[in-house]
């Protein structure tokens, strides 16, 4: 096996990197791929919680890479309810400087032979933790929300990624609220794409289910009837190369356009 190593990053915190990592990973695993999720947010780890695995951590990446206290397979934790999904937890008691970029690169190379997909959950910011997260990756996914500050930070990250030869990152636009876009209170999907100028990988509507499932420690991607779950499953299919139409989140769909055409509806 020769895995694709994909870093999921954003610059700004709180836009949904960790949730996206967990759910894209889960969706890829549902498609039958063997996936490992690497938490690169040393000192502020959360990926374990989103997957509901925090109680099962015995060893972490620092134990393996720095302390050399265990084997790689002792660090890997198999997800609940999913055969193909694994977590590589990081340490909560160390900080970002505990791991050197070369060690992260070696780790990615090692995981490459064991999995189909290696997804790296990057920390917020552009410092050491970010560098560690991107150094071993060969593709990047940028997560942002339709807010001016988040988009600007995403733009900064896209610029920085080119320094790591990650020239064409893909965009996941998270927490979209069609009602707010319609009222003109939220940036339109096209506004964001216009500024960032990178290909779109997925649109995820704001969804209470995500908060519920995240707190419960079960990725929403496993749910059948939620819109955000559908969005994550679509992203996974696009990653494996399928053409999947985008969910209609901006309310500019056929129906709205038809209504506009015959003079109903505003605008």
């Amino acid at each position: 096996m020769e895995a694709r190593v994909i870093v999921i990053t954003s610059g700004k915190g709180g836009v949904g990197k960790t949730t996206s990592t967990a759910n894209i990973g889960a969706a890829l695993a549902l498609l039958g791929h063997k996936v490992v999720l690497v938490d690169a947010d040393t000192g502020l780890r959360n990926l374990d919680g989103v997957l509901g695995l925090e109680k099962r951590i015995v060893y972490d990446v620092v134990d393996y890479l720095v302390e050399k206290a265990c084997k790689l397979r002792q660090v890997l934790i198999k997800a609940k309810n999913c055969e193909n999904l694994y977590l590589l937890p990081t340490s909560q008691t160390h900080d970002k400087d505990a791991i050197r970029p070369e060690q992260m690169e070696e780790l990615c190379e090692e995981l490459r032979s064991e999995f189909d997909y290696v997804l790296i959950d990057s920390p917020a910011g552009i410092e050491q933790g970010f560098k560690n997260a991107v150094v071993g990756a060969d593709e990047a996914i940028i997560v942002t929300t339709p807010e001016v500050s988040a988009v600007r930070d995403a733009d900064r990250i896209i610029g920085l990624l080119s320094g790591y030869e990650l020239y064409e990152p893909k965009l996941v636009l998270n927490r979209i609220r069609p009602d707010m876009i319609r009222r003109g209170d939220m940036m339109d999907v096209n506004d964001v794409l216009d500024i960032l100028g990178i290909p779109l990988l997925g649109l995820i509507p704001e969804d209470e289910e995500i908060i519920i499932s995240t707190n419960r420690g079960e990725p929403v991607a496993f749910e059948q009837n939620s819109r955000s779950a559908q969005a994550f499953r679509n992203i996974a299919r696009r990653i494996q190369g399928e053409e999947v139409p985008f969910l209609n989140v901006s309310d500019n769909g056929l129906w709205t356009r038809l209504k506009r055409l015959v003079g109903l509806g505003g605008n």
Partner: peptide, 17 residues
Amino acid sequence: RSGQRITFDGNVVVMGD
């Protein structure tokens, strides 16, 4: 992009945003 700065003694033409 955000955070990038180009300083030049002369004219600058940007083919992009």
